[in-house]
């Protein structure tokens, strides 16, 4: 399994929005279209999908060749997410860090987009890390044991010296995912600078 988890490419990171945030998806979708026009975030940006009609769905999705960006509502909690679809360079830790960086870059852009009028702000102390690959990373204790060191490496960078609680979703049907809560908050720009 150790070998398999090292091969994992389909990694995602979601930074939850601050409590009570009610993002206007229409404005986010419009922002994503502008991002495509201006190449605002990393990757070959292809299209925008509007899933505002789907409860607890992907919300606003910016489809890119390498991976997707979204302001999604999975689990009933809105957040800015990036998940990788195609292979990236570097070892697993580097790939996870890269996914987190992309998510934070998107979050930072949304936080500072004048059209969104400050309606989007990440909480800065909660995130989810997931493996979108049941072959290499089934939702199991073994996967958690193999993945934990790279998660801790990322958290050490994001929240230096700060305690973080981990909570893995134990539902065997769900993909492998860990919710993380840090004991201190930081804004997207600060978190991004730490990566």
């Amino acid at each position: 399994m150790g070998h398999s988890i090292e091969e994992l490419q389909r990694i995602g990171v979601k930074f939850y929005l601050a409590e009570g945030a009610e993002p206007n998806l229409s404005k986010v979708i419009a922002a994503f279209h502008r991002w495509i026009r201006n190449s605002s975030v990393e990757g070959l940006l292809i299209d925008v999908a509007d899933y505002a009609h789907v409860p607890e769905g992907p919300g606003a999705l910016l489809v890119a060749h390498e991976g997707n960006y979204a302001l999604d509502f999975a689990g009933g909690r809105p957040g800015v997410v990036y998940y990788r679809k195609h292979a990236a360079d570097g070892d697993l830790a580097a790939r996870l860090r890269s996914a987190a960086r992309n998510a934070l870059q998107a979050a930072s852009l949304l936080e500072n987009d004048p059209e969104l009028e400050g309606a989007i702000e990440i909480g800065g102390d909660e995130l989810q890390i997931f493996a979108n690959d049941r072959l290499l990373a089934p939702n199991s204790d073994e996967t958690e044991a193999g993945f934990r060191p790279v998660v801790d490496t990322l958290l050490d960078a994001l929240f230096p010296g700060v305690a973080c609680k981990h909570c893995r979703d134990q539902n065997p049907g769900e993909r492998f995912n860990i919710d993380i809560k840090a004991s201190q908050k930081s804004d997207a720009k600060t978190l991004l600078a730490r990566l």
């Binding site: 999908a49 789907v54 769905g57 992907p58 489809v63 999975a74 979108n132 690959d133 049941r134 993909r175």
Partner: peptide, 20 residues
Amino acid sequence: EEYSDGILHITTRQDVQLHF
């Protein structure tokens, strides 16, 4: 979830379609 965008689309021919 793993190969598309986490959305299953039911079609007018009772198929399931995945996009992207």
